[in-house]
């Protein structure tokens, strides 16, 4: 049974029809990736799931509960957290305060401390800089902070939007190692990437989006074999 079902969702920005009937499923325990070019609707799909963009039609169901009418701050309580595109960390808040904001909906102080410990174990660099304001971190550290901040909500479904963007190859490896690790610890992950090669190396299944539509879906192996995908996204 699917943990998350996006059913035939249409969204608009003003008059621009951004998502033209997107349907995707994510099963519990999976890593599912959305790939596609700029403007294909990947981030919009994530924002629709999070409640930042309201679908004009269609529905989004998380564990048998429709969430597409909830405001963004309530979706978080349902167990969905996003590490947004461009990191969007709070530049004037310290690293620690950024992480605390990730746990905003939670009241279990002890468990929050535990999760912060867990984030620091995954990203020791963040612990060294916990009193520093976010704006002074390097790009890679900001990405770690963005992922760590999303983890602080203790989500069952984690949405990652372009975690590799603008990072040096070595850092990208690091980030993806963490993604795999999180998944092994039981977090379901929906990963948006332009770097299809990296995405396929961690994901189980994937969807290819083009101008607001799903044009292809399948297991990672199927997608890798597909000549269209090879030509457009794998540089083959």
């Amino acid at each position: 049974m699917a943990m998350l079902e996006v059913r035939n969702v249409h969204t608009y920005y003003g008059n621009i029809h951004a998502l033209k009937g997107i349907s995707i499923n994510v099963d519990e325990g999976e890593i599912v990736t959305l790939i596609g070019a700029n403007g294909a609707g990947k981030s919009t799909t994530l924002n629709a799931i999070c409640g930042l963009v309201k679908p004009r039609s269609g529905e989004i169901v998380l564990e048998n509960e429709a969430i597409h009418r909830l405001p963004a701050h309530e979706v978080v309580s349902k167990g969905v957290a996003q590490s947004p595109e461009g990191r969007r960390i709070f530049g004037r808040l310290t690293v620690q305060e950024n992480l605390e904001m990730g746990a905003f909906r939670r009241a279990d102080a002890g468990a929050i401390q535990e999760d912060m410990r867990r984030v620091f174990d995954l990203f020791p660099r963040l612990e060294e800089r916990r009193k520093q304001v976010g704006g002074t971190l390097s790009g890679g550290e900001q990405q770690m902070l963005a992922i760590g901040r999303a983890m602080m909500a203790r989500p069952r479904l984690l949405l990652l939007d372009e975690p590799s963007m603008g990072l040096a190859p070595l850092l990208v490896e690091d980030i993806f190692r963490v993604v795999r690790q999180l998944n092994e610890q039981g977090t379901t992950i929906l990963l948006v990437e332009q770097n299809a090669l990296m995405a396929f190396s961690v994901a189980h299944r994937g969807y290819v989006l083009e101008t607001g539509r799903v044009v292809l879906e399948g297991t990672v192996d199927e997608l890798r074999e597909n000549p269209e995908v090879q030509k457009a996204y794998l540089g083959g």
Binding site: C50, L52, E74, V76, M101, A153
Partner: peptide
């Protein structure tokens, strides 16, 4: 927007 993503009303 990001604050809302954190669950802040």
């Amino acid at each position: 927007q990001t604050a809302a993503l954190m669950g802040i009303d």
